[in-house]
Design a protein around this nucleic acid. Structure first.
Lengths: 231, 231
DNA sequence: GCATATTTGTCCGTATGTATA
DNA sequence: CTATACATACGGACAAATATG
């Protein structure tokens, strides 16, 4: 039985987007978005033939797209068996939070004198509040992630930005298999606000403390629920 | 079969997976090594036809290898023009050192109580001393890089390890275009030893201070020389 | 600016190897 | 063990873009 068969429906609309720039990159973007929104859940096999037929591109081109996403760790490649949407282990989760703590705290610690460019952080919080009002928990999760992406961006390093994008995209793989998204996203909106407030008042050290606790709590909660889920 | 036979059974599959790496991966490794050793200097165009002919693989396979290396930032891809060995800008250099400072210092700061697992660091220093004795400056540069790779590895995070490997491979692109490699590698051997000594004596904070100065000095020296070189 | 040769982008058909039912 | 489905890798084809004279 193939998990692929039933989940190919919406791809026809994406076909229209296949104009301009490199085909493989465009295909990768389509698949990346599908994975990010949970359309292809972790564990799904992505069949070369099924998808290349549906998207109207050759298998060679699709394979190039697969390579891209494999390097972004969204797919895993089993030799002679094909590619599958990554299934995170608990160890992966723990490591992702280890890196987040390293990078996000280091970004705050490296700040100079206030004021800081906090516009993007304000926007992310506002986006989260709107999502919470509308009870759109997936959107709230995305907004929270955006907040921390922009937090790390305070380091002012393109490579750090890319690393954070990658690692948070990975983390989203875990979000999509959680049963009760509200419980996993709503409490952290207020805590993001606290962090932002500390930064606004020129207290990066305090913000770093809050952030450290935030990450520890989030990791514990997620890892615990995740462990129960995949066992 | 004996009970021993049963417990060893699974290993056969692992062995099979080990030798059976795909052609594209093997090609990528060949090219990666060539680039790392400076055989293909930055700016070189890598022709699809020339290389696929020479290596005896099809163009499609070679292109997959190119994709891998492009994602490792060792190659750049110009649409309809081909792939070229990456040419670092001064901004790239500065950003690489920004990330190094972030990651390496954070790794030291996150250390718990001594003693620490310093074997790999000792080995890297020893390798550097040997290279210095033999006046093999390229090898000394490699040893210094290994030292810092293992320094970051103290964080105990697979993702951090991978990031450091990638970023230090990028940095090597700059090393290869430097005129006087001795001046750029020899002074730092002693400073690595100092850092190691601080760690041995259970003083990670001191090691972090030394490391910070090391990175600042190295960056300044490299960026300055590099700027003069590419202008 | 133009015409030509070269190189890349994309796709196809096929033979072979591999895993799974 | 066999059959089936799928991935791997190759070589060839043609269009499109680019470089060269």
């Amino acid at each position: 039985m193939t998990e692929t068969g039933d989940t190919l429906e919406g791809l026809d609309e994406d076909r229209a987007l296949l104009d301009r720039t490199g085909t493989a990159d465009r295909v990768a973007k389509i698949l990346r978005d599908r994975i990010a929104e949970g359309f292809f859940p972790p564990g799904t096999q992505l069949s070369e033939k099924a998808i290349s037929d549906r998207l109207g591109v050759s298998r060679n081109t699709l394979r190039e797209a697969f390579r891209l996403l494999t390097h972004e760790r969204l797919l895993v490649h089993a030799l002679n068996r094909g590619v599958f949407v990554r299934r995170l282990t608990v160890e992966d989760l723990v490591d992702i939070y280890r890196v987040r703590r390293l990078m996000e705290c280091a970004a705050l610690r490296g700040l100079g004198e206030p004021p800081y460019p906090l516009d993007a952080l304000e926007a992310a919080v506002e986006r989260g509040r709107k999502a919470a009002r509308e009870e759109d928990w997936r959107e709230l999760g995305t907004a929270n992630i955006k907040f921390h992406e922009n937090l790390a961006a305070l380091a002012g390093s393109p490579r750090t930005d890319e690393l954070m994008r990658r690692i948070l995209a990975e983390l989203r793989l875990a979000f999509h298999v959680m049963a009760d998204p509200r419980r996993f996203h709503e409490p952290y909106l207020a805590r993001n606000q606290e962090i932002l407030q500390a930064l606004r008042s020129g207290d990066p050290a305090g913000a770093e403390r809050l952030l450290g606790r935030y990450l520890d709590d989030s990791r514990s909660q997620l890892a615990q629920a995740y462990e129960a889920l995949i066992s």
